[in-house]
Computed example of a mutant assay.
Amino acid sequence: MADSSVKAAVEGVTVAGGQVSGAATVLRLVLGRRLQDLRDAAGISFEEAGRALDVTHATIRRMEKAQVGLKVPYVEKLLHIYGVTDPQEVDAFLDLVREANRPGWWHRYRDVLPDWFSAFVSLEAEADQIRAYEPHYVPGLLQTEAYAAAVLRAGMPHAHANEIDRLVALRLARQELLARKQPPLLWVVLDETVLRRPIGRPTVMRAQITHLIDSVASAPHVRLQIMPFSAGLHPAMYGPFHLFRFPLAELSDVVCAESLVGAAYFDQRDDVSTFREALDRMCAQAAPVHRTEAILSGIRKEI
């Protein structure tokens, strides 16, 4: 393989001030995908790559899927096996590997952050479009502090107060991405149930709905649609999920579907298309964006 092939593998990815400057998991996804491309172009199987590193073929698969960290010596040897010999090309790739292995800003919350949610925060931080369906509560990026505390206490009844405080702080820190110079598009379909179910005291719910009204009115990058009871059944009644889209062409869309004990991530085209189609259908069924403020104001008066 010509050394120029790896130039494409690192072109457009910068360590600071560029497209993937803060999310180690996302950068690992990019590098893993590019290692896969290099391996495929070299005509080398998982088994052959694994034998070269004295690891199992499953380890190579996990590296390419960003399910494990990338070890610099392993990647350096793989690049050599895949025919990449230009020292500058190799050094550039390995610099990105080192960057990918550095913890993200959310690492300081590792004492309360589940492993599966680290990936979620990373995807959220680097997406340029976040679409979501939420049937249970207001999404974390749009929660007030009091509402977030009430939701977390309900979901974690045995947690210590300090743990709840730390998780609330993490949730509020995540919201800073909406204040960035170029924030992602956040497009949420919110089930009417979310607004009707009491969470915390009435003052908490009123303040939360006011915050939603202000967010929709003042933030052109936030689109909020309400799925009314009158819409009846719809395609996504199975549960909440988020769909992330990235500015990097190398990354396919990723869907995160949450459950009581964790989350499942999907990036295969057919799976993602199923979720995207469900969202598109719901957006057609839900009240249009220009009606959202009036709906929220009406519900707020009833609290």
Rank of each mutant, 00 (worst) to 15 (best):
V222F: 03
L123V: 05
D54P: 01
S118P: 00
F120G: 00
V112P: 01
P240H: 06
H160D: 14
E258N: 05
E47Y: 12
V138A: 00
L35N: 09
P183M: 13
L141E: 05
V216D: 01
L177H: 09
P157G: 12
P103L: 11
Q268L: 10
R269N: 05
R197L: 04
V254G: 07
L142R: 04
A119E: 10
E76W: 00
D86G: 04
G232E: 05
T210C: 03
L233K: 08
Q268P: 03
R269I: 09
V10M: 01
S4T: 13
I44C: 05
V254K: 01
Y265G: 11
A119I: 10
V112H: 01
F46W: 10
W105L: 04
F266C: 03
L78I: 06
F275H: 06
V189E: 03
T144D: 03
T25D: 12
A159Q: 08
A100L: 06
H57F: 04
R196H: 15
M282H: 09
Q67H: 12
K71D: 11
N162Y: 02
L96R: 15
V13W: 10
A249R: 15
E124V: 03
A263P: 05
V15M: 12
F229C: 04
V216K: 06
C256V: 09
K7T: 11
A150Y: 04
T210I: 00
D86N: 14
C283R: 15
N101F: 04
T292K: 08
R28H: 09
P157Y: 12
L248Y: 02
Q208E: 10
I295Y: 04
R51D: 14
V261F: 10
P247Y: 02
A16S: 12
V254E: 05
Y265V: 08
V121R: 00
F229I: 08
M237W: 06
A23Y: 04
V30F: 04
W116F: 14
T203N: 06
R174F: 07
V254I: 15
Q143F: 10
D3H: 10
A8G: 13
L78D: 08
R51V: 07
I299A: 01
